[in-house]
Structure formats: C-alpha cells, structure tokens
C-alpha cells in the first residue's frame, strides 16, 4: 500500500496547477523513490516529467509499485478543499480503485477526508536520452514567464538563439516584431535573481509560444527555471523543487 504525507498541501496543488492544462489523464507512479509522472500532451508535442522524491515527504511508505490513474481536473477539484498549509496524507491500496486524501490543519482541529476515483490508464512511457546540451540558461522563473507572455501577444512562435553574447528570444507577427536579449548576469547575493548561461556551442531553435506559456504555469514551484537547448532536439525546461522537479520537454519547429 501507499501512505505518503506532505507537510504542506501547496506542493501537490502547485504541481497539479502546473500540468493540468497540458495533460488530462495520467498515471502517478508510486514506488520506493517517491511519486513520479510522465505524460505527453494529446498532440505529442510536449511532455511533462515530474518527481516528488521520498525525502520531500514527512512520511513515505510504498511497498509495491502502484500506478494511480488520475484525471487531473478531478484531482484539482479535491485539492481545492485543502488549504495550502494543511498537512496532506495520500493513501491507496495495492490495486486501488480510489485514492484517499486527508487534509489536516496545523491546529489539528480539522480533518477533511476525500476519496478520488481512479481510472485505468494505458500510458506509453518514453525513454528520454541523456543529453549534453549546447546551451543551459538559468534565470528567474518570473522573468521567463514575462518574456513568453509578452512575445505570445505578437506571434505564435519564438526563435531562441544562444550565443556568447547571451540568449535572445525573438518573434515576428502581424502587428510587428519583438526581441528580448538576456546577458549573463550572476547575482552573488541573490543567485535566484541572476542569469547564468553555459554555452558549449551556439544554438538556434524555434518553438511554439502556446506551449511555453503553458509551461510557465509551473513558475510558482521555483524562483528559477533552467532552460536547456541543443540544435535539433527538444527543449528542456526544468523547475526544481527542494525535493523533486517538474520538467517539460518541447519538440522544436522544423523546416523553413
């Protein structure tokens, strides 16, 4: 059986908020390393990979591998009943029909108990190769979100170029064009506010802004985001949590 306790409900609430517009039904794979999820969107253009490691749980017990087939819209309805600061306990049997969720406030005088029906989801897992990326950019997640939102008002796609000058996001649309260039600017006192760029080789790729704007819904998970790019391979965007991560992969646009 599974028994997993989070000190703060907000962790799972934020993860679900971050991915629910990308995937609808997915398996939460529970095993002795924690709770993992890998799912592609319907068009097979984007993939989300999530890992909540056991260290992030106040209590974690999972004797066997258990796949929890969850509809994320339904899960979000249940999670709405949890206050951010509530302690959350997830429980499931070995071959579960339902996931039990218990929310307890810090004063210990309210216990909310919910059951979420589970579904059988036959999900293909993709093998993601280890990649040495040509460019890796670490920057404030709020700034990345702003850039994606601003450019998405002008165009459907963005060209991302990483050179020794910096990283440039540019787009062209019906009403005009726009570009934002970020230069390396580490912040010694507050590293989460700085921008660092590791460049092995120049990279130039084009991506759909609709997906990038969608990924940015994970900004609440981390003050920083890491963007990894290589020519002709999917982009990796990672939001690292204290004990886990949410990663998004996006296939580039191809051709002229």
């Amino acid at each position: 059986m599974l028994e997993a306790r989070l000190e703060q409900s907000s962790v799972l609430k934020k993860v679900v908020d971050a991915i629910k517009d990308l995937v609808q039904d997915c398996n939460f794979d529970c095993n002795d390393s924690g709770i993992q999820l890998q799912a592609m969107d319907n068009s097979h253009v984007a993939l989300v990979a999530m890992h909540l490691k056991t260290e992030g749980f106040a209590l974690y017990r999972c004797d066997r591998n258990i796949a929890l087939g969850i509809n994320l819209v339904s899960l979000q309805k249940v999670l709405r009943a949890a206050q951010n600061e509530d302690v959350m306990t997830l429980k499931a049997e070995d071959s579960p029909d339902a996931l039990s969720l218990v929310f307890e406030n810090s004063e210990n005088d309210r216990i909310s108990e919910y059951d979420l029906k589970l579904m059988d989801i036959d999900q293909e897992h993709l093998g993601i190769p280890e990649t040495e990326y040509g460019a890796t950019v670490k920057m404030p997640s709020a700034e990345f979100q702003r850039i994606c939102r601003d450019l998405s008002l002008l165009s459907e796609s963005v060209a991302i170029e990483a050179t020794k000058e910096g990283i440039k996001f540019s787009c062209t649309g019906d009403i005009g064009k726009g570009a934002v260039t970020l230069r390396q600017n580490p912040n010694v006192e507050k590293p989460e506010l700085g921008t660092t760029i590791e460049l092995q080789e120049p990279v130039a790729l084009t991506f759909s802004l609709k997906y990038l704007v969608n990924f940015c819904k994970a900004s609440g998970l981390s003050n920083t985001v890491t963007i990894s790019l290589s020519n002709e391979v999917p982009l990796l965007i990672e939001y690292e949590m204290e004990h886990g991560y949410v990663r998004f992969y996006l296939a580039p646009k191809i051709g002229d």
Binding site: S43, E124, L126, G127, S157, T206, V233, A251, K253, I254
Partner: peptide, 14 residues
C-alpha cells in the same frame, strides 16, 4: 513556415 515536430521522433518508447 515551420512545421511543428513531435517528441516521438526524438524519444523512443520504453
């Protein structure tokens, strides 16, 4: 105009 690629051409089924 560029076409949107898919992930299945980069990542293999496991």
């Amino acid at each position: 105009k560029r076409a949107q690629g898919t992930l299945t051409s980069y990542f293999g089924s496991r």
